[in-house]
């Protein structure tokens, strides 16, 4: 065998650590997706921000006392505190923050629940805000990085029928493209409990039943061309397999169970945050009762 052939052979016959290689490529793709979700829009915004000739003033310090000055605007049982709204521009950097912190009114639910949820909402938004400031580099006054981002957060009452109070709270971060997160609290006002998904059912059969229904709706939406979802392409773990007992859910105004997924969790970003309304008859044999869902 001549030396070239030998060398090429040697080069081509190295052992490939198949599983690890696959895992590393998959990991890097995932990481790149996360980076793109954040950074790509900043590239896109660069030209626009430079061209618009924004007035260069720092009209709000990026240090805001979150729990200061309550300005309750009454919206039914949930008061929105709208004191955290400011713009920050200094030419290169443009950030808008608009946070409406939901606060459940006293007496709308048992005291312990009201205070713990209100504390949770404040904490959540404070954390979202601090993360936003750090991610955007706004905590570094001398940074040269070009920033064009916004953060908003708020809440709405999905359902309030005297028995159940359902609050949806969300954050929306945009840096060109947007990333929304939605969370729900389903509160049994009469009994003073925050509902968990497993607590709605008397056995574990609900998981299989809901999975089957979600798969059915996904297939239906894909067939009609309405939405696309991730599938098992052999390389990604990101596709719908099963809900977990702590899946995001809420009970809608029609007393139907709705299962919610995050953006990118089971579908490309274009699909938004997929929600599946589960017809009650597919889960009725597993329901603990018809108090909440019927």
């Amino acid at each position: 065998m001549d030396s070239l052939e030998k060398a090429i052979n040697e080069y081509k016959s190295i052992e490939i650590p198949k599983e690890e290689l696959e895992a590393r490529v998959r990991g890097a793709i995932k990481k790149a997706r996360a980076i793109r979700a954040k950074a790509a829009p900043v590239w896109a915004a660069r030209g626009a921000a430079a061209a618009s000739g924004l007035i260069i003033t720092l009209n709000a310090a990026p240090s805001v006392a979150m729990a200061a000055a309550e300005a309750p605007g009454l919206r039914g049982v949930v008061n929105a505190l709208t004191f955290n709204r400011f713009n920050l521009t200094d030419g290169k950097r443009r950030a808008e923050v608009s946070l409406e912190t939901p606060q459940i009114a006293e007496g709308a639910a048992p005291e312990a629940i009201v205070s713990s949820l209100n504390a949770k909402y404040l904490k959540e938004q404070r954390e979202a805000y601090e993360k936003f400031i750090a991610d955007a580099g706004l905590d570094k006054p001398d940074s040269d990085e070009i920033i064009n981002r916004s953060l908003s957060a708020g809440a709405e009452v999905v359902k309030n029928d005297g028995g159940l109070l359902v609050i949806k709270h969300w954050t929306l971060e945009t840096a060109g493209s947007s990333l929304e997160t939605r969370r729900f609290d389903n509160i049994d006002v009469e009994n003073g409990v925050i509902l968990s998904l497993p607590a709605l059912f008397k056995d574990d059969g609900y998981i299989g039943a809901i999975n089957a229904e979600i798969s059915r709706q996904m297939a239906e939406q894909e067939a009609s061309g309405e939405k696309t979802y991730f599938h098992d392409d052999g390389y990604f773990g990101e596709f719908f397999e099963t809900i977990s007992p702590d899946a995001k859910f809420y009970i809608n105004s029609g007393n139907k169970l709705v299962i919610v997924f995050d953006k990118y969790e089971i579908a490309p970003g274009s699909a938004g945050l997929p929600e599946f309304i589960i017809p009650t008859d597919v889960i009725s044999s597993h329901l603990a009762g018809d108090l909440y869902i019927n």
């Binding site: 290689l21 590393r24 490529v25 890097a28 793709i29 980076i35 950074a39 590239w43």
Partner: peptide, 20 residues
């Protein structure tokens, strides 16, 4: 070296996917 090669692959994928 196996581990280093895997690091390089991972970095290359990241670069390829985050290029404009």
């Amino acid at each position: 070296n196996r581990d280093d090669a895997l690091d390089v692959v991972s970095d290359a994928v990241l670069r390829a996917l985050t290029t404009k």
